[in-house]
Computed example of a mutant assay.
Amino acid sequence: MKLHLHQLLLFGILLFSIFLLGNATFPPPANTGAPGEGLCSDCHGGNNPLGLDGDIVINGLPHNPMDGERYQLEVILRNPNGLASRGGFQMVVLDGQNNNFGQLENPSNNSRTRNFGGKQYFEHNPARNFPGGNEIVWTVDWIAPNNPSNREVNIYASGNIADGNGDSSNDFIVTTLFQANLELPSSTAEIRTQALSFFPNPTSEVLNVKGISNGSTYRYQIVDPMGRLVDKGELTGGSVNVKHLPVGTYFITIANEGEIHSGKFIKQ
């Protein structure tokens, strides 16, 4: 059976349309800009004739995250001049040797996680329209690994700021790299649960901590029942100011170079 030229052209247009629709639903894998990977610009780009602007930002992870902790990450795609209509992204978390690092869970609406080539990706599913504030926000929980041999955290993300007309040549591609170092207890650390006492409990303003070693520097982190980080800092004077926290139940972790303690308290 012979195909006429116009039939071949229609078939090619159909295949290209399916490809564009697939990328609007979710991106092809391994396009975060990480070492050995491509970028969104492999499929989208052009000379940006519409003058689209913006960037992609990763929020929610401190520069010294703690071993085994859960953090809610935000991927924010921004278009300040408001000329874009749609946006999408892809993100991956790797260690210093470009291996998958930690676990991604609980993606927000219009996003997903998926595994490919030994790595776990967080990505749009599908692409979203820019709201009035000219920012699109996706969230996902990242769980830090326990006792990894490599402590570097590298979060690579690539975003597509698009005019939404279905022509990929008008899109504006942005990238980011967030770096941190996983803070682990020393190999001789003693892990103790509920070894400290916290009072008063419930409390409305200050949570006192009894049982810490004199002369040691302690750090603390407070998370809510969903595992979201709500406060962190250095313990001073054996107490933590929790006046700013909403009423509810919280979990606190206190650590120094040789110990990790955890407990639960109620803010009233």
Rank of each mutant, 00 (worst) to 15 (best):
L3M: 12
L3C: 08
H6P: 00
L9G: 08
F11Y: 10
G12A: 14
I13R: 14
I13M: 11
A24C: 06
F26C: 05
P27N: 07
A30V: 13
P35F: 00
P35L: 04
G36M: 09
E37S: 11
G38P: 05
D42R: 12
G46K: 06
L50H: 07
L50Y: 05
V57A: 01
P62D: 10
P65R: 01
M66T: 13
R70M: 13
V75Y: 07
A84S: 10
S85G: 09
G87Q: 05
G87P: 06
G88Y: 05
F89G: 04
M91A: 12
D95Q: 09
S108Q: 10
N115L: 10
G118A: 09
R128D: 15
P131F: 11
T139G: 10
W142P: 06
W142G: 06
A144D: 09
P145Q: 06
N146S: 14
N146L: 14
E152C: 03
I161L: 04
A162P: 05
S168F: 02
S168C: 08
N170F: 01
Q194C: 10
F198C: 00
L207K: 00
V209P: 00
N214F: 13
R219F: 15
Q221P: 01
Q221W: 14
R228N: 15
K243F: 03
L245K: 02
G248H: 03
